[in-house]
Design a protein around this nucleic acid. Structure first.
Lengths: 354, 354
DNA sequence: CTGAAAGCGCTTACAG
DNA sequence: CTGAAAGCGCTTACAG
């Protein structure tokens, strides 16, 4: 592969001059510029980004460690992150943690070794030593979706607040006559894992409903755990009337479990999910879900990170999630109820509110 | 961030010695080794991968340019690629082309600039100049899923052959009494775009059925196009009885279109899809689909690429896809039929055959 | 406007 | 077994 030396030789100038035209430095004669450009063209020269990074100490690259690529929520997030980063002149390298803290650490380490300019993380746990060191260390970092509370450093957080949406969901369920409500929770060490249970518990309390341990299943945000927990619920002497899955994959697992028993949603058991995905419109029955403004979250996270990298004060952002009522919890109340519940939305769009 | 010099100073040895212990070079005294390791530990030193790459001219990194991150098929592929690469000591950088040739070229260029050791591509088009140059150039490359025919260089191809599965599908549809069959095709410039139409046309021919132009809709493998094409089909004076979507996203779009008209699958129109995904089990109705051994494809592709990189002869691989009958085309024939059609399979598993 | 030179952080013959 | 030195491909003060 041609190097800057070859270009310099071909153009009859020094490598310094070549570098200057490549970096659009103003002090280059038009003549030199033209000859360099011609040489670049002739040789099909492309600057070696590795060498450039070593010299400039910046890679123009962002690292994104997501919890699970198989989860459409994170895939949507990754897409918007890459889009916004590209618009700002950065590339992004994605690491998939598969909900495993060890894999997450592996990717963080690899990304740091590559000297990415900044790191976007959705932690799979409460904070490994590596993660804490990284937060304290020099690399700009922001949390997306999930974060690590109680850090002694300021790490911006970009996330959705689902509390009101969960309250709307419980109102909806209560209105439908459901009283025995269960949740498939995510790992308690993750913020989204614990917050969603808390929000659910608090909302239930407003109606004087308990959330017994037997109705609090421990999942890991992946389908298999949704299946397992739902199975356990159905084995109970008094099974819940509703299962609320804390993410869409566990909802998929729940559907698998219900179907495996030849039971039906919502007749035998109702189902709702955190995170909305296009397929929920077409499942049998369509699934009531809490939708996040995912695209907006990804963009805001990139903006915060790039602000840090470029020395501007970054901004934490919290956007509201909202309830989308479909039929998986029973027939919805007539559309005339004065509650702030939206009944349906176009398949792919995300709505953001602040 | 500590550099190798700092470690050398701390350990009281030269940087050469530090480098040797880091790279497990045999000729280092146990004493020096111990002091270096202690220094590394004390300083929290991590080698700069950028500098190492510049020096060794290898990045231990693979580039993967996929057609669309929002497509579960490619997401599954990406996951298995990353897994196998990691097992072989490589990282992978994913670029999402979003089915846009310009974006694909952007990512290929970026990846090449970073001097990745090898490139895995699922081309979104028939071969841009850049892609052709790359194939001819020095960077090891292999095609996954889609490929570019008629290249003057040998680029290994790892893909699934769906011809028999499509034949099984048509047999199934014919057996159900359907005679007016339509297809939502992918871009003709992609191999999977054209091959799936051809396989379908040939299979129809075996039953003396035509595939009129009006029943050949041009999609782009994304949901919106499935919606648009299905709408056009339904507007026809004589709409098809079955729509076969050449990928799962266009099938999603088709479901959207059918639903928007208040029509039902399969009563009003039947639906089948290329690519199977876990949600197809739970849609209303469950969708009959052609499943690829996706995980196996990703692994085989990585093995072929790493073989090239490390100087071993790479191997092209073609695996068979298979039909999974569900209920979206009408009630399936009794399970006793002697046809080689599998009726159902566990939700997430991929089966590979060669 | 231009070039010679230093240096980014590593690895690796080469000499001892 | 060990270190001094060259060099990977760039960028960027510095001097002219």
């Amino acid at each position: 592969m041609a190097s800057i030396k070859d270009v310099a030789a071909e153009a009859g100038v020094s490598v310094a001059t070549v570098s200057r035209v490549l970096n659009e430095h103003p002090s280059v004669s038009v003549d030199a510029r033209a000859r360099v450009l011609a040489a670049v063209e002739a040789l099909g020269y492309r600057p070696n980004a590795v060498a450039r990074s070593l010299r400039t100490d910046q890679t123009r690259t962002l690292g994104l460690v997501i919890s699970d690529v198989m989860n459409p929520y994170f895939t949507t997030l990754a897409r918007s992150v890459e889009e916004e980063a590209r618009a700002l002149g950065y590339s992004v390298i994605i690491g998939n943690a598969d909900e495993r803290p060890d894999l997450q650490d592996h990717h963080v380490r690899t990304l740091l070794d590559r000297r990415i300019d900044g790191l976007l993380v959705s932690p799979t746990d409460g904070g490994s030593p590596l993660m804490l060191d990284t937060a304290r260390g020099g690399t700009p970092m922001v949390f997306v979706d999930r974060w690590i509370p109680g850090l002694d450093v300021d790490v911006p957080v970009v996330r959705a607040d689902g509390r009101q949406a969960v309250r709307d969901l419980v109102a909806h369920l209560y209105g439908l006559g459901h009283r025995r409500l269960a949740i498939i929770a995510g790992p308690a060490a993750t913020t989204t894992g614990s917050e969603r249970v808390e929000a659910f518990r608090e909302a239930l309390a407003e109606y004087g409903l308990p959330l017994p341990d037997a109705y609090t299943g421990q999942g890991d945000f992946q389908a298999e755990s949704g299946r397992r927990v739902t199975d356990a619920f159905l084995d109970l002497a008094e099974p819940p009337e509703v299962v609320f899955a804390a993410d869409n994959l566990m909802a998929l697992g729940a559907l698998d479990a219900v179907r495996a028993r030849g039971m039906r949603v919502p007749q035998d058991i109702a189902l709702a999910a955190f995170d909305d995905i296009p397929w929920f419109v077409h499942t049998d029955p369509p699934v009531t879900a809490i939708a996040q403004p995912t695209g907006e979250l990804g963009r805001a996270a990139v903006r915060a990170l790039v602000d840090m990298i470029e020395g501007r004060p970054p901004q934490s952002v919290t956007l509201a999630a909202h309830l989308v009522v479909r039929r998986s919890c029973g027939e919805p109340a007539p559309a005339t109820t004065p509650t702030p519940i939206s009944s349906e939305e176009p398949p792919v769009t995300n709505r953001s509110q602040s």
